[in-house]
Write a protein that binds this DNA or RNA. Structure first.
Length: 919
RNA sequence: GCCUGGGUGGCGGAACAGGUAGACGCAAGGGACUUAAAAUCCCUCGGAGCAUAGCUCUGUACGAGUUCAAUUCUCGUCCCAGGUACCA
């Protein structure tokens, strides 16, 4: 007579189970990582969050994906580093401080506490002992230290330049932080302002960053493509055009240098365009009839809105400067214009215009009635400048080009450049779109830039021994949003470290917060290191990050900056690698429709009553406009608070649901209809486990070869189980497609349910020992396969299954004692002497391995088509020959019916799968 | 405009070295159990038609093509999302 040792609850109750295991993991430091040379390391990292208040659905999705991989790798024997921290500097803290009359630090640390608790409730397997917050002096002192090192090596410099200025945030923005000429944070129109700024020479690494884009096989191609486009390398030539009437001074004011990617069209250049800010514009027009017109034009452009929506509507326009230059190829006099489409920031700020072969130049020439000269003829066609309707920019053969006539244009490209080089009129050159990274911010809540401005000595670096330059805490945020640092004399006024003058000034700017996130992953390797930025040995062991996971929205900025920073550290001899992230998974964004009430503006989903495609405001009853489905954002209020889901269903079901909804790289339109199904599935497994414990007590799980099983149901189930192990492993390993992995486990669960495991009769139907043994194997593997996804649930079931048991009152503690395996016939013998082992529980189990021999079935299903249409199917012995399968198919009744009397032209047999009969 | 991805049932999504389209789940409908409900279990479920244990036609954004066979490959068209843009 069987006796149950313990009875499982009716259902999985997260509120009871989840805290218990979380406590167990924490108490036993299960996820503490330490360097162990004897084990293969695996550094898994998810992009750390900005502590904005509460975690959101995007975090939950991101971190769930990461956690599953971390737990999976751990079960595969890796020594896993899985840290978490906070990207804690930034503007929202300042804004919140002003709004709530608090301090950015207080607000930030409050949020960190809230969010840490939320993450802990999700059961993520972080090594919390490595937690870092970038706003702590222990962290940013090393950023300041690196800044000084970079200053020493001239990798950072100061220049006065026009910067993007957001009037609302009172701060400078990097080019990358300007989205379509609007502030990326607040959406305010960006203006231009001239300030002294610190810049990182990222352009020194443009070539290297570009080159290695093709050496990142673990990155999604779309990300490397985006980075390549961002770096924007173009190869071409720099050509000098002499200015008519000036000294033949090639190097100086006597000529205009242009950058062109089409030196082959040089003979077709008929006019010149300079950017309105080009230094020559003013001097060229001075004293000519055009002087006034040019000055007005330049003035007008400088005032013009720079928003892209406005730019799109701008017509290409320009003004003749009154001066001429000479085409070095043919001596042609070319009028010099200043034009609104010429950009000072790109190339040399001057464009040689070839209207016949560039559409923009063509439009401009037509507008101002300028000469068009065809210099490239396509094969089998004759272009006529006077009748052309648009520019011709495809390959062809040169004409009107002196000695180069008849030459294919790609060949002419290098020949003309060579000639220019010989004449000293030009050279091969490369131009990048990427600009140096301006990092100065006129903000308070950031890393202070460690330099001092002395009236005698100029810019003087802070002494290394004076680091960190701590951000003063007793600062009051200014109402207008500006930084209080310049107003704090005790911070600002200091002695010059070089000459000792007492009236030196500290730099009151702080660094762009992207600087902190460019190296946090390396700090995680030795977060407590007080003697250096990082411990070299620890970094050597852990870096690079094996798998990085985060939102695709960081494809350019953060990822490019991080790659750049590793190059800087490499150049400084601090590390021996260049690429921080070996593999990258960019998860799709979580989106939802927006709701807008005419009375109350944007509404949170719970503020509206939605039925049958219409929505009404709960406050005023007005009809609510249901907007487009866009990325969840606080400002649009189309957000779902994960807490609701977490409170109702617990961590595991939330995790399961997030993964089951869609593959990770895909965008996810939020809809929680499916969550009930996940809840049902978990309880289905729960009951199945309970049943299996009952049925398989004292039964050893079968793990042998398939061929030693004789019971046909047992064989089928055994095969299914091994197929499931393979499928789940492949799905995780290959592409992180957890949705299909979960489906596969569901199938196995369904297969077991169809075998009477659910019948609740007091006397079980006589099950063969083989089935019982295979069932024991199945349930064990179901739990193992699900354990990275639903870890609390898995631990609980695993324990119940008799491998481990909690002794005594679990509310008093979670001491877990190893018991003699219940599957070894004496299930009831509890071994109280067992020492607590930190790898007890499912967390210490190895990932299941499938047997090749168990994957194949005895019988296979063959489908039969006639003329490509499905007409019949039959099962047949898997060993059957192709010929036998063909004969069987032809003999099939349904097939015969469709063949009728027609002669069979051809029979195609696809091995073990399909027969197609062509008549 | 350019560069990436995508368009498959009522819904989320499966299946692409070409080989049963719709796995798995949700929603829906029916049934069992129950005094009843919940929970659970079982069945049906792209569309249309018919002589309805079944069979036929049709169907993966649209139009062509290659092939014995196309959601999958090729060409063209139309939408959607993300990135990027006077870049010479």
């Amino acid at each position: 007579m069987r006796r149950r040792i313990y009875i499982m609850d009716d259902r999985y109750s997260p509120e009871k189970v989840e805290p218990r295991w979380q406590e167990y993991w924490e108490k036993n430091h299960i996820f503490r990582a330490s360097e162990d040379q004897s084990k293969k390391k695996y550094y898994l990292l998810e992009m750390f969050p900005y502590p904005s208040g509460k975690i959101h659905m995007g975090h939950v999705r991101n971190y769930t994906i990461g956690d599953v991989v971390a737990r999976y790798k751990r079960m595969n024997g890796y020594n896993v580093l899985h840290p978490m921290g906070w990207d804690a500097f930034g503007m929202p803290a300042e804004n919140a401080a002003i709004d709530n009359n608090t301090h950015p630090a207080a607000w930030t640390y409050d949020n960190i506490n809230t969010m840490r608790n939320q993450l802990k409730k999700m059961g993520f397997s972080y090594d919390w002992e490595r937690e870092i917050a970038t706003c702590s002096p222990e962290y940013y002192r090393w950023e300041q230290w690196l800044f000084l090192k970079m200053l020493e090596k001239d990798m950072v410099y100061r220049k006065e330049s026009y910067v993007n200025w957001c009037g609302h945030c009172q701060t400078v923005l990097a080019n990358e932080q300007v989205e379509e000429d609007l502030c990326w944070r607040c959406g305010e129109m960006v203006q231009q302002k001239k300030l002294w700024q610190w810049f990182f020479r990222i352009t020194d690494y443009a070539e290297d960053l570009l080159l290695h884009c093709d050496k990142l096989p673990g990155w999604p191609e779309k990300v490397t493509v985006m980075q390549k486009n961002w770096i924007g390398k173009s190869t071409g030539s720099e050509i000098s055009f002499k200015i008519e009437g000036r000294q033949n001074d090639i190097a100086g004011e006597g000529c205009i240098k242009v950058f062109t990617t089409r030196p082959d069209t040089l003979f077709g250049a008929t006019f010149m365009c300079l950017a309105p800010e080009h230094p020559l514009v003013e001097s060229l027009s001075r004293g000519t009839d055009q002087e006034k017109a040019v000055a007005e034009f330049v003035e007008k452009i400088s005032r013009q809105e720079r928003s892209s929506s406005a730019i799109e509507n701008y017509e290409k326009e320009g003004v003749f400067t009154g001066a001429w230059c000479i085409n070095p190829a043919n001596g042609r006099r070319m009028p010099i214009y200043t034009a609104n489409f010429a950009l000072m920031e790109y190339g040399t700020g001057a464009v040689m215009s070839v209207p016949a072969h560039d559409q923009r130049d063509f439009d401009f020439a037509k507008k101002y009635n300028l000469d068009i000269v065809v210099v490239i003829q396509p094969a089998g066609e004759v272009l006529d400048a006077s009748t052309m309707a648009q520019a011709f920019s495809a390959p062809g053969v040169l004409v009107n080009s002196g000695q180069y006539n008849g030459m294919p244009n790609d060949k002419a490209m290098s020949q003309i450049t060579d000639w220019l080089e010989r004449e000293g009129l030009g050279k091969k050159t490369v131009s990048f779109r990427l600009r140096d990274w301006g990092i100065s911010r006129q903000r308070y809540w950031g890393t202070p830039i460690p330099v001092i401005h002395c009236q005698s000595c100029g810019v003087v670096p802070v002494a290394e021994s004076d680091l960190p330059i701590v951000l003063p805490e007793d600062a009051h945020l200014l109402e207008n949003g500006g930084s209080p640092l310049p107003t704090l004399d005790f911070f600002k006024k200091t002695d010059c470290p070089k000459c000792g003058r007492g009236d030196a000034m500290r730099d009151t700017d702080t660094m762009d917060t992207f600087v902190e996130s460019s190296w946090y992953f390396i700090r995680y390797c030795s977060p407590g290191c007080t003697s250096a930025m990082f411990d070299k040995e620890a970094v050597k062991y852990w870096m690079a990050v094996d798998q990085y996971i985060g939102g695709v929205e960081h494809a350019i900025l953060h990822l490019l900056y991080s790659r750049y920073f590793m190059r800087v550290l490499n150049t400084l001899g601090l590390i021996d690698f260049k690429e921080p992230f070996t593999n990258l998974l960019t998860q799709g964004m979580v989106s939802k429709e927006t709701l807008k009430c005419p009375e109350h503006g944007y509404l949170f989903p719970e503020e509206a009553q939605i039925s049958e495609g219409k929505a009404a405001c709960r406050k005023c009853g007005s009809e609510v406009e249901i907007g487009r489905v866009i990325k969840m954002s606080k400002s649009k209020k189309n957000v779902i608070d994960p807490n609701d889901l977490l409170n109702k269903y617990g961590a595991d079901i939330t995790r399961l649901f997030c993964l089951f909804a869609a593959p990770p790289e895909k965008g996810l339109e939020w809809n929680d209809d499916g969550v009930e199904g996940c809840y049902r599935f978990i309880n289905r497994v729960w009951r199945l486990a309970d049943r299996c414990i009952d049925i398989t007590q004292g039964v050893v799980p079968y793990t042998g070869p398939l061929s030693e099983l004789s019971d046909s149901d047992a064989k089928k189930l055994y095969t299914k189980a091994h197929q499931t192990i393979k499928k789940v492993t492949d799905d995780i390993e290959g592409s992180f497609h957890f949705n299909t992995a979960i489906s596969a486990v569901m199938e196995l669960v369904n297969a077991m349910y169809s075998m009477d495991f659910n019948t609740d009769q007091p006397d079980m139907p006589q099950m063969s020992p083989q089935i019982k043994s295979v069932a024991a194997f199945c349930i064990r593997n179901i739990i193992l396969l699900l354990s990275p996804i639903v870890p609390h649930f898995a631990e609980e079931v695993w324990e119940y299954m008799g491998k481990f048991v909690v002794k005594g009152d679990s509310s008093q503690g979670t001491d877990i004692y190893k018991v003699q395996g219940a599957d070894e016939s004496q299930g009831e013998n509890i071994d109280n002497s067992g020492e607590l082992d930190k790898m007890n529980g499912i967390i210490g189990q190895l990932w299941p391995v499938y047997r090749e021999d168990a994957l194949v079935t005895d019988e296979i299903l063959v489908v039969v088509q006639v003329n490509g249409k499905l007409r019949s199917k039959f099962s047949i012995d898997a060993q059957s020959s192709d010929d036998f399968i063909r004969q069987t198919a032809l003999a099939d009744e349904m097939v015969q019916k469709h063949i009728a009397d027609q002669p069979v032209k051809k029979v195609i047999v696809v091995r073990k799968k399909l027969v197609n009969i062509v008549v």
